[in-house]
């Protein structure tokens, strides 16, 4: 973008310019959605609330400062709690921008030079409901289905949330940390890793 603001060079700070810019957009447009953020290090991220996620993502896609027009990857990570704490599931969106290719600020990063933005959402493990972003990026469709299939995140507001990789009647979500290998599936025995 020709009218993109010049990012001042600050060699002292290791902050990631792309994530910083996305955070700036979010703080002006969705100020109460941002929960936490990490600007330095190899993997900067912004954590946001699950409510209104689709609107927030649409802002990130359409805003002139970010223009994140590609949803690269959706990941679910299971963090089981200890004792009474049920734990959380983190859903991570890696977004990137083709439109910003000419933008020099995108290619000046401290630790890495790969201009993606990571948006995190954390939801309780017993009610892992995350609004869908399918209408923002259609390609999120299959990624969401896979995250549901393997980690068990329920994406709300979208049609057709079915398993994609595993068979329909597969027990549980294998990438949950407390998932146990079934003894057999349709009469074919599965030897558990402990017994091998």
């Amino acid at each position: 973008m020709a009218d993109a603001p010049e990012e001042p060079e600050t060699p002292a700070s290791n902050a990631d310019p792309v994530t910083e810019r996305a955070l700036g957009v979010l703080e002006t447009e969705h100020a109460d959605s941002v929960v936490a953020s990490e600007m330095t290090g190899a993997h900067p991220w912004i954590q946001v609330k699950a409510e209104g996620l689709a609107d927030l993502m649409r802002t990130l896609r359409d805003h002139d400062d970010t223009q994140l027009d590609c949803c690269h990857l959706i990941t679910g990570v299971d963090y089981p709690g200890k004792g009474k704490d049920v734990g959380e599931i983190e859903v991570l969106y890696h977004l990137c921008s083709y439109a910003k290719r000419e933008d020099a600020a995108y290619f000046k990063r401290a630790e890495k030079n790969d201009p993606w933005v990571a948006i995190k959402v954390r939801v309780p493990r017993d009610a892992p409901n995350v609004p869908t972003v399918m209408e923002v990026w259609t390609g999120a469709d299959w990624h969401e289905r896979e995250t549901y299939d393997l980690v068990g995140v329920r994406f709300t507001g979208r049609p057709d949330l079915r398993r994609i990789l595993l068979p329909e009647d597969w027990p549980g979500h294998p990438l949950r940390k407390d998932w146990e290998t079934p003894a057999s599936y349709h009469g074919i025995p599965i030897i558990a890793p402990e017994d091998l």
């Binding site: 990789l165 595993l166 294998p174 290998t181 074919i188 025995p189 599965i190 030897i191 890793p193 091998l196």
Partner: peptide, 15 residues
């Protein structure tokens, strides 16, 4: 995949 591949049939001779 025999050990951790939960979705892999452990030998096609089971089928």
């Amino acid at each position: 995949y025999v050990k951790y591949g939960y979705h892999v049939v452990q030998g096609v001779d089971q089928v």
